[in-house]
Computed example of a mutant assay.
Amino acid sequence: MDSLDQMLSMLLDGAVEVLDISPDLYDGAVERYEEVGTWLAEHGSPGWQIYPQGSFRLGTVVRPGTPGGEYDIDLVCRLPLHHESTTQERLKQRVGEQLVAYRRWKKDQGHTDAPESLEARRRCWTLGYPGFHLDVLPAIPDDEHLPTGIRLTDKDLWEWQRSNPIGYADWFRGRSDLSTRILEKRHANVADVPIWHVRSPLQRVVQILKWHCMIMFANDPDNRPPSILITTLAGHAYNGEEDLFTAVRSVLDNMPRFISKTNGKWWVANPAHEEENFTDKWNEYPERRKAFNAWFTDIDTTMSELAHMEGKGLDTVYERLAKSFDRDPVLHSYKRYAASIGAATDNRMGATGRLSPTAAGPRKPSHTFYGQHSSARD
Rank of each mutant, 00 (worst) to 15 (best):
173 R>H: 07
173 R>I: 03
174 G>Y: 00
174 G>R: 08
174 G>F: 02
174 G>I: 00
175 R>N: 07
175 R>V: 13
175 R>E: 14
176 S>L: 06
177 D>F: 11
177 D>I: 07
177 D>P: 07
177 D>V: 13
177 D>W: 10
178 L>G: 05
179 S>V: 12
179 S>E: 12
180 T>K: 03
180 T>E: 13
180 T>R: 11
180 T>H: 04
181 R>C: 06
181 R>M: 04
181 R>P: 05
181 R>K: 09
181 R>T: 02
181 R>S: 05
182 I>C: 02
182 I>W: 04
183 L>E: 14
183 L>H: 11
184 E>D: 10
185 K>Q: 13
185 K>C: 03
185 K>P: 04
185 K>D: 01
186 R>E: 00
186 R>K: 00
187 H>A: 00
187 H>C: 02
187 H>D: 01
188 A>W: 06
188 A>N: 03
188 A>C: 11
189 N>R: 06
189 N>V: 00
189 N>M: 15
190 V>H: 01
190 V>K: 08
191 A>E: 13
191 A>N: 07
192 D>M: 11
192 D>N: 05
192 D>T: 11
192 D>F: 05
193 V>S: 05
193 V>A: 06
193 V>C: 06
193 V>T: 09
193 V>Q: 02
194 P>M: 05
195 I>L: 09
195 I>G: 05
196 W>F: 13
197 H>D: 08
199 R>C: 09
199 R>K: 14
199 R>Q: 13
199 R>T: 10
199 R>D: 15
199 R>E: 07
200 S>W: 10
200 S>D: 10
200 S>P: 10
200 S>I: 02
200 S>R: 09
201 P>C: 11
201 P>D: 09
201 P>F: 00
202 L>W: 10
202 L>T: 07
203 Q>S: 10
203 Q>G: 15
203 Q>L: 06
205 V>W: 08
206 V>G: 01
206 V>I: 10
206 V>K: 06
206 V>R: 11
207 Q>H: 05
208 I>K: 13
208 I>T: 02
208 I>P: 06
208 I>Y: 08
209 L>N: 03
209 L>I: 02
209 L>Y: 06
209 L>T: 01
210 K>Q: 09
210 K>G: 05
210 K>V: 01
210 K>L: 00
210 K>W: 03
211 W>Q: 14
211 W>E: 15
211 W>S: 14
211 W>K: 11
212 H>N: 09
212 H>M: 12
212 H>A: 14
213 C>P: 06
213 C>I: 05
213 C>F: 05
213 C>A: 11
214 M>T: 08
214 M>G: 08
215 I>C: 12
215 I>F: 15
215 I>M: 12
216 M>P: 03
216 M>H: 12
216 M>I: 05
218 A>F: 12
219 N>T: 07
219 N>P: 03
219 N>C: 05
220 D>Y: 07
220 D>V: 04
220 D>F: 13
220 D>K: 09
221 P>M: 01
221 P>V: 07
222 D>S: 14
222 D>Q: 15
223 N>D: 05
223 N>W: 00
223 N>T: 02
223 N>G: 04
223 N>R: 15
223 N>E: 03
224 R>Q: 09
224 R>N: 04
224 R>I: 01
224 R>A: 11
225 P>G: 01
